[in-house]
Amino acid sequence: MTNAPLMTRETVINTLLALLLLAIPLGASAMGEPFYITLATRIAILALAAVGLNIALGLGGLVSFGHAAFFGLGGYAAGILATHAFDGVPLFAGIPGTASMPIIWLVAVVVCGLIALPIGAISLRTTGVYFIMITLAFAQMIYYFAVSWPAYGGEDGLSIYVRNEFPGVNTAQPLSYFLICYVVLMAALGLFWLLRGSRFGAALQAARQNATRLAAVGIAPFNVRLVAFAVSAMVTGLAGALFADLNKFVSPSMLSWHMSGELIVLIILGGKGRLFGPVAGAMLYVLIEYALGGITERWQFFLGLILLGVVLFARGGLLGLLAGKARHG
């Protein structure tokens, strides 16, 4: 790698994608079109959730079909804390709710990490199809719990009446809220980049490529995978908290298996295991949804056809088409 150019084609495309995502809402704001700012915020948050999943799925090869669980848990963390703060009723044992985003994010991340550890510990005893199905089943378990637990809205969901606060920023303004989400997304991409280049990242990718060899050099694949699964869940949980604040609403649909499927779709559309894959995927997905949704009520039918085409014929995703094959196997 001594002769590598300063900027590879992929780096150029990544930079362009980052700038494009920033330019859309800035332009929309200048033209007084707040709808497009919300659309861009949606892209940033979905991309963030998929960056989380990309740690487990892209780097570790762990096909989690249950990441909606963490997305939803993050959302419910935001919704429940905000509701208690709004009503002035303590959460339990005298602990008050809060409307402060940094605290909510911390709670969402810690809760997701703590729940991901036991789920990961059981699921990672299995591999292949079993892993896919057991992560799905755990997510369903949490989904049904949320549906049948009446305290926080049950099936109807939970409204957040006022968007939570961030020190020094007016979060009610669409552009400010977009910028918060954008900064968090960039921080998460930085984390992904650091992780991929670290010793830990090397071990995680080795666990995907050949777990036996990794074990032979004295690193237990199980531990590496478990940590990756938990970190992955924490990032996706953070995205869930932001998503709840974007919509000012949380419902069990954030926990549903359709959501888990969508997160995988985002990664595959963009390019599995690549730094900006989730960003490209989320942009493409929201664009397809918006463009097709404008033409036909039956847009999901055509989304299915497009997806099928990508899986069968364009395996590298959007980044694979734009930037060539991934360097990492």
């Binding site: 995988i264 056809l305 099928l308 899986v311």
Partner: peptide, 9 residues
């Protein structure tokens, strides 16, 4: 998983 998910849609 993805292709059959697309079939569901």
């Amino acid at each position: 998983v993805l292709a059959t998910f697309a079939l569901i849609l």
